[in-house]
Structures are given as structure tokens and as C-alpha cells.
């Protein structure tokens, strides 16, 4: 039996098993509920004004139950991890994240410096360690990046992650920054169109972005404008296509 078949079977089994006992074990997470949740992120169309919405977390994380109020961002896994209580709890408004005030502060400052509309959306990503997350369009990214790096009360000097994601509707580049001066952290999701995926390069601000941008270009075909040396890095120079794009056709489908 191939892996896929096995997988399929297990999936079916799982579905059957779960149907007749909706709340037998109150402690088990009900993923069904989450999947059926009608709220779907359609980020390409959202023109929500820039406001931090305490208690209204990102659409994608609505089903998530509140986490420990005390779990600060610096100690994500420490202490007891609270279980999502039960299905009922999901309907209750979530407790505000402990990092909500921080996000609000960031947003106020950003609004002062960049004006309205620079940040498309802002929320606390409750999965894991409550990271304040900003969603921006690529047009505003360069000025925002500059600000994040250089502004006295941000000083995000350490690039922890640069990752590209193909959402099929659009492309995203996800950055994770850390500030050694202040010890705070932020995630930025920069959106760009899919056909002409272009994002301004920030390799002059964070040298660490250099190879990462090349990698994202190589695997996802995101062009980083003004990158000093945007060439393929992992794939051979003469490779056709960008493998991590969802419309990429593999050479050999069986592999």
C-alpha cells in the first residue's frame, strides 16, 4: 500500500471515528469546528483600516482558544500550556494578549511616522509565542523597514527569519525581527501580487536578508528590487521555474 493510499484510508477512518462523538473528550481539540469555521482569510481584498483590534485576533486564528495570560512572548513554552477548554470556549471573546499593548504602541508610532494606510492589518499571532504581526503591502514595505531598523524605540536589528509563501491568491514574504536593544519581537508579512511578485529588497538594512532573498527568489520567484546580486542560490543557474510555487510542474511527478 502506498503512503498516499494509507493516508487516505486513515483520513477516512478519522472522519468516521470523530463524527459520532462530538464532545466525548472535552480535552481533545476539535479540529472539525475549526475547519468548518466560515471565516476564511482573503487577505488580498481586505482593506481594513489600520487599527489594532484587541479581542479580535486575526481571522485565521479565530478558532484558537486563549492561551495562558501569563505566557509572555519571551517565555513561550515555559509554564503550563493551557488546553483549549472546549468548543464552547471558542465562542467567548478571547482574553487580550499580553502583548496587545506593545502592538498598540508600535502601531501608534507607525501611524505617526508613516501615516494612515501603511500598515494594512495588525494582530497578535497567538500560535506559539504571541508575536505582534503586521501585514503590509509591498509599496509601504521599504519605508516601514527603514523605520523598524532605525527608529529609536524599535531598533529591530536582528533578522530571525525571511520566508516566502505562495498563497495561490498572492505571495507573501514573512519577516521575523528581534531587537537586542529592547528585547521585543515583531513579524511582518509583506504582500505582493502573484504574477509579478516584486518586493523591495532590505538586504542593505539587514545583511542577513541577502542570501535569504536570493533563496526566496530562487524557490518562489519573488523578485527583490534593488538586490545587489539576485541570482539563483540553491537550484542550478539554468533551472526553469521556481519549485515552491504552487503552479510549479515537477520534472517527474512520481518523485
Amino acid at each position: 500500500m502506498s503512503h498516499e493510499e494509507q493516508n487516505e484510508k486513515e483520513l477516512l477512518k478519522e472522519e468516521k471515528e470523530l463524527q459520532p462523538e462530538p464532545s466525548a473528550d472535552a480535552k481533545t481539540e476539535k479540529k472539525e469546528g475549526e475547519e468548518n469555521n466560515p471565516v476564511k482569510a482573503e487577505p488580498g481584498e481586505s482593506d481594513a483600516p489600520v487599527t489594532a483590534k484587541p479581542g479580535l485576533p486575526p481571522k485565521s486564528s479565530v478558532p484558537r482558544a486563549p492561551r495562558a495570560a501569563g505566557a509572555g512572548k519571551a517565555r513561550p513554552a515555559a509554564g503550563a500550556r493551557p488546553r483549549p477548554a472546549a468548543k464552547k470556549a471558542e465562542k467567548k471573546p478571547e482574553e487580550p494578549s499580553p502583548l496587545q499593548p506593545q502592538l498598540d504602541r508600535f502601531l501608534r508610532l507607525l501611524k505617526d511616522r508613516l501615516g494612515e494606510g501603511a500598515v494594512k492589518e495588525a494582530y497578535i499571532n497567538r500560535a506559539g509565542s504571541h508575536i505582534p504581526t503586521l501585514v503590509v503591502d509591498k509599496e509601504h514595505w521599504l519605508s516601514l523597514a527603514q523605520l523598524l531598523k532605525e527608529e529609536e524605540s524599535f531598533q529591530f536589528d536582528y533578522l530571525r527569519l525571511l520566508s516566502g509563501v505562495d498563497y495561490e491568491t498572492h505571495m507573501e514574504v514573512v519577516y521575523q525581527f528581534y531587537s537586542f536593544a529592547h528585547g521585543h519581537q515583531i513579524a511582518v508579512r509583506v504582500k505582493t501580487g502573484r504574477d509579478e511578485a516584486k518586493v523591495p529588497s532590505v538586504s542593505h538594512l539587514w545583511k542577513a536578508a541577502d542570501w535569504n532573498e536570493r533563496e526566496a527568489y530562487d524557490l518562489l520567484g519573488i523578485h527583490f528590487e534593488n538586490h545587489p546580486n539576485l541570482r539563483r542560490i540553491l537550484m542550478p543557474d539554468d533551472w526553469v521555474g521556481h519549485p515552491l510555487r504552487k503552479d510549479y510542474e515537477p520534472l517527474d511527478k512520481e518523485v
Binding site: E10, E14, S60, S61, N125, G128, S129, R160, L161, Q176
Partner: peptide
């Protein structure tokens, strides 16, 4: 732990970093 037989991870996005011998090994 109590894990469903088929792991279906809820919709969302996460980045965690851990300390590998070589440095921060992150998973997004």
C-alpha cells in the same frame, strides 16, 4: 500525548526557533 490519529493542524502560521548546536534553528 493525546494526539488524533491524523494530524490536522489548524489553520494558521507559526514561527518557532530553537537552539540547535549551530544556532537558531527555526521552523516556519
Amino acid at each position: 500525548g493525546k494526539v488524533p490519529r491524523v494530524l490536522r493542524v489548524p489553520e494558521g502560521e507559526i514561527y518557532v526557533g530553537i537552539e540547535s548546536p549551530r544556532g537558531e534553528l527555526g521552523c516556519h
